[in-house]
Structures are given as structure tokens and as C-alpha cells.
Design a protein around this nucleic acid. Structure first.
Lengths: 337, 337
DNA sequence: CTGAAAGCGCTAACAT
DNA sequence: ATGTTAGCGCTTTCAG
């Protein structure tokens, strides 16, 4: 064991391998022109010394840090958790670092985003965070591509990766309609969310097209507790809805819980409840929630592709819309019943 | 709006404020000796230009990056999710950045950790990751303090923040014993986890002390699906256990699901099931899971305290043991029933 | 208290 | 293909 050693630098490796310091740099740069045998000798010397190029110094010079900033609002939603896990693995596999920061899910400009931007990050990924124009503007100026995940921007002036919410919501509507329900309800997520808006539009429009009555609306804010309260209000109505479509699974799980445990309803027979996202819990026998599956793995893969492609030109932007699929389980009345 | 501007540097601010570049640096360094009015003038100029010191350059020189590496195994466990959320907020509040990397929850040395270490991170936090001696050694050499969260190291040669698992498991055992159960089972988490070992020891020892029979043991690997299978094995036995203590809540939720939906058991009357962690879902009416609560907020606060204190001397280490509390709900038979 | 100057560790011209 | 040189943007002596 060596005694208390300061970090080894490329110069140490250079001396050891008997070459110039810049040769060491080249040995660690994929496209650089250097003799194969010399490179091997340098790599060998580096291994012995336990050397790795200092990413900080490298970033300072290159103007890019190999770091991707990831902003996330509420980690409590399993859909985001799953996404974060996938994204974490994907970035790691691509040799990119993931810098996580809390984005509160709100519109107001977050100071942390500001700070993150100074790390000369390769890209900024926002998971279900409502877009803010000031943030978008700042990133544009800093030449940092922004990728909205699970959100679209009003002006479509930024890149995003989203599911086809309208189609999904229409599929849910069609399924509920096929179950011969009359009174429908929609439990909304947060109002400023494009995701919620699209799901609501798809659901409402499909019902209207088929001549069904407009759904009752309650606000569940994408949150379990809020959704429980909203469900109570729905189920206490004289014209109690027969089918509830919740804008995400978290709220649907809350609705099932309240319907079953507080109102003693047989979910799937006396009332139908459907969600969106198809989180792992939806498949648990205790819930058996009908939902619309978002292809998380595909969406994350697309996000990575965008990161790699946009870091060369941040001004370009691209919208990716992923197709999902309806997953019918026991929480909705069977078709034709 | 300016035209396509390169990032502004301290020199730009210096020129604008009519001072030297080093004055700008001092204005942004808390302890530096600079006249108050000059500092204000510089700060004003910086605001106008939208200047912030480049953290990359700063880190390169200071040898510390203000980044904390956080390694996490499985984000699917809500307890870790909650912790990550809290930690993310805490670090952000302290002006520290959080670099997330997948640690696979395994013992083998991860290449990403290697890479992260070169960012001259202030500390490495490992969430429920089994300690590896090679990793510990590497961090020691790099003078990076390691903090194990929810794990202890065998040799106690590193810092950690853990709950008092033995006490918690004993409290669960006492509670189940008070419910007049005869046949007990313990559903274990992953074998190499100190957390699991301590919970198992506390549970088993308490039962032994009271003259109760040793619990049947099944392996649930801290995982929902694995725990479902393990529960089936338990409930198919001739000597079916009357009370099951699961080493974490995820497994307990699986046990409840199987007991209720596959075996038609009335959980809390015909069988008692208890968990550990007291995740939010434990309180859902559909589960009403008796659990032992880990004080996540306190543990994260302590983690932050350790980070701040250890970054000046990485050689020191400290063990923090947090006290939790028993949360009795409906999944276990009431005491005296 | 303040400015000039010397690097932190590395990459990217520029010469050879 | 390789070594030399000039910085990336900042902090920190060192003089004054």
C-alpha cells in the first residue's frame, strides 16, 4: 500500500510510460491518432497506477460534461419511479452521469435548475414537470436541449417524449362503453398538466361521439389522498357514476380502495374503475386494475436517443409519441356483461 | 435579447464592475476578504449579466465538487423512493448536487461507482447496498467518505445510518406474542443484508426468550413476487403459521395479497401479518398493515449531517442508529383477543 | 483590502 | 504520429 497519495494525473502516467502528457490524453480519446502499441503501453501504465482521466478537467475544456440533469416532481408515483430506474440504467449504459434535482412539479422557476445548468449538462430531462417558458428560454441560451417526459409544451417549441394519451383515453372510454355503463366520471389530475388535458379530452370526446352523456368531473390531483376524497364525493352523489376513469393509476387505486372499503362496493361488478399507466401495482390481485399501459422502456430508450442526438445541436427539437395498449383486468365490468 | 452568447465568465463581470477578476472570485467566496461595497457592486454586475461561477472550474481547483454520489439498488421499494425524495430535497437545500447511479444492490464492484469517484465527490451514500470491501478501500484512498444507509458494515469500518432493527423486530415479536399466536413464520429478505440479519435475530431471539417455538423461515428476497411465492409455500404447510413477520413491507403486502385472495383468509383474524418500514401503502385501508416505522426524515437529516461533517475528514466514521416505533393496524390480531 | 500571476488536470490546435 | 504550447474558468498565494 502506498502512503496517502494525491490523485494521479495524466502526467504521472506519461512519465511512467515514457511518453508525453498529450499522448496520454490521446490514448484515452476514442478518435485520436496514436500508434496502437503506444496506446497499449499507456493504458497499461494507467492501469497500474489506477489512473482515469479527471472528468471535471475534461468537461471544463470540452464545454460538455457528460452529465444529464433530471428533474422530477413527485417520486411517490410508481410510474416515475420506474422511469427513473430505467433512465438511470440507460444513462449509465451510455456512459452518462445522472444529476437528479427536485423540480417540485410546479411552474415557478426552480433555483436548482439554474445551478444545474452551469454544469454544462448535455441535456435536461424533465419527468412530468410542467414546462415553464423562462426555463425553456434559459436552456436555449445555454444551448442545453430540454426533453419533456410525459408532458408536451403548449407551443411545441421543445422536445418531448409522451404517450398517445388521446388514443389511450379513447380506448378506455370504448371499453367502459362496451361494458354498458350509463353514468361516467372522470377523475382529473393536476389542471396544468398536458397529460391530464389530453386524457380528459380523449375520454370526453369519445363519449360525446357515441352519444353518451358527458362525464361528471372530480379533481384528484394525481394524488392518492386527494383522489380518495374525490372518490367519496363521487360515490355520495344521487346520480352515482357507474364507471370512473382516473387520469392515472395512483388515483384509480385510491378509488378502488374507497369504493370497496368505505362503500362496500364490488369493484368490477357494481362499479367499474379504470386507470392509466399500468404501474406494477395495477396487476396485484388485490386491485386487478384495468389500465392503459405506457411503454416505459421504449419511452426511456427514445429519451436516450434524443439526448445523444440533440447534444450536438440543441436548437433542433423532436416530438416522440409512443403507442400504448389497453390492459383489461377485473376492476371494470366485462364487455357484454 | 443578446445574440448567441457564449457563457459569461468572471472576467466579463470584472470588466463590467471595473475590478479585477480575482475580486469577482472573492465576491462569490463566503469567507473572502473584500470590501462590502465592492462586493455589492460586483454582485449587481453579475446579476445583470446573469453570471454564476462555473462549478466545474471551481471543483477542479478546490478538489471537491459539491456533488454527492448516491447509489441505489432497487427503486421499486417505496421506502427507498421516499428516502431518495427526502435526500434529494435535503441535499438541494444544502447546495449540494446529487449524482444518482445504479448500484444493482449486489456485492460486485460496479464500474459506475469507479467513474463517479473521479468527480471528486464530497461523499458517497449507498441506499441499502451491501457493502463491498474493495469499494470501501477505493473510497478511502480517494478520501471520499462512504455512508451506508439502512445497512451496517461487518467490520464497522465505515459510517452508516440505520434503524434499530433488533429493537424493532423484538417489538413486532412482542406484539404478535401478545396476540396469542402459537406458530410463527419469518419471511426473510436478501441473505447478505445486515438489515435482514438484524431483524431476523431480534425476532427469533425474542421468541426464544419467551419460550415460543422457533419460527418457520421462508425467503422472500425483499421482493413482491418472490414473497408471493414464499407465502404460498407457508400457507400450504400442514402446520400453517398463525403469524408471519416479513422483513419489509413490500413482502408483507404480498403476503396479505396471497392470504386474502388466494387462500380466502381474513387477515387480522385468521392470520396475522406484520411488516417493517411503515411505507405509505401500509396505511391504505385495503392493507392496514401493522409495521415498524423507520424515521426516514430523521435518518436523512442525519445522513446530511454526516456528509457535511465527514467531508473535512474522510477517515473518521460514525454510526447512527435511529429509533423507530411500532404501528399497530388491522393486519395483526388485536392484543388480548 | 486588492491586483497580478500561477496553476487545478486536461484537450486541441500547432508544429514537427 | 508525436511533442510543445496555449488555454478552459476559476481559486489562491504573493506582493503591495
Amino acid at each position: 500500500m502506498e502512503i496517502e497519495k494525491e490523485a494521479i494525473t495524466s502526467l504521472d502516467v506519461a512519465r511512467r510510460a515514457g511518453v508525453s502528457q498529450s499522448a496520454v490524453s490521446r490514448a484515452f480519446t476514442p478518435g485520436a491518432s496514436i500508434a496502437a502499441d503506444k496506446r497499449e503501453r499507456i493504458i497499461a501504465a494507467a492501469e497500474e497506477l489506477g489512473y482515469r482521466p479527471n472528468p471535471l478537467a475534461r468537461s471544463l475544456l470540452r464545454g460538455r460534461s457528460n452529465i444529464v440533469g433530471v428533474g422530477v416532481g413527485y417520486l411517490t408515483n410508481p410510474f416515475f419511479t420506474q422511469t427513473l430506474q430505467l433512465l438511470s440504467d440507460a444513462l449509465d449504459g451510455a456512459g452518462l452521469r445522472l444529476m437528479l434535482f427536485p423540480a417540485q412539479g410546479s411552474t415557478r422557476p426552480e433555483p436548482s435548475i439554474h445551478e444545474i445548468l452551469h454544469y454544462r449538462i448535455d441535456a435536461l430531462v424533465l419527468l412530468s414537470v410542467s414546462p415553464s417558458s423562462t426555463l425553456t428560454e434559459q436552456c436555449r441560451r445555454a444551448q442545453v436541449p430540454v426533453i419533456h417526459y410525459n408532458r408536451t409544451t403548449p407551443a411545441q417549441d421543445a422536445s418531448c417524449v409522451v404517450g398517445d394519451n388521446e388514443t389511450g383515453a379513447r380506448a378506455i372510454a370504448a371499453h367502459l362503453l362496451a361494458g354498458r355503463h350509463r353514468r361516467f366520471a372522470f377523475m382529473a389530475g393536476t389542471a396544468d398538466s398536458s397529460t391530464n388535458a389530453q386524457r380528459e379530452a380523449g375520454f370526453t370526446e369519445y363519449l360525446a361521439e357515441r352519444g353518451a352523456p358527458a362525464p361528471i368531473r372530480e379533481d384528484g390531483a394525481f394524488d392518492f389522498d386527494t383522489a380518495m376524497a374525490a372518490t367519496r364525493r363521487l360515490l355520495l352523489r344521487k346520480d352515482r357514476p357507474e364507471a370512473i376513469f382516473c387520469a392515472n393509476d395512483t388515483m384509480a387505486l385510491a378509488a378502488i380502495t374507497v369504493a370497496r372499503h368505505e362503500f362496500g362496493l364490488d369493484v368490477g361488478r357494481e362499479i367499474s374503475i379504470a386507470g392509466y399507466d399500468d404501474v406494477p401495482m395495477a396487476a396485484w390481485p388485490g386491485f386487478s386494475l384495468t389500465s392503459y399501459s405506457q411503454p416505459a422502456a421504449f419511452m426511456v430508450a427514445e429519451t436516450l436517443r434524443l439526448i445523444l442526438s440533440l447534444r450536438t445541436d440543441a436548437d433542433r427539437h423532436e416530438q416522440v409519441v409512443a403507442q400504448g395498449s389497453l390492459v383489461v383486468r377485473g376492476s371494470t365490468r366485462p364487455v357484454g356483461a
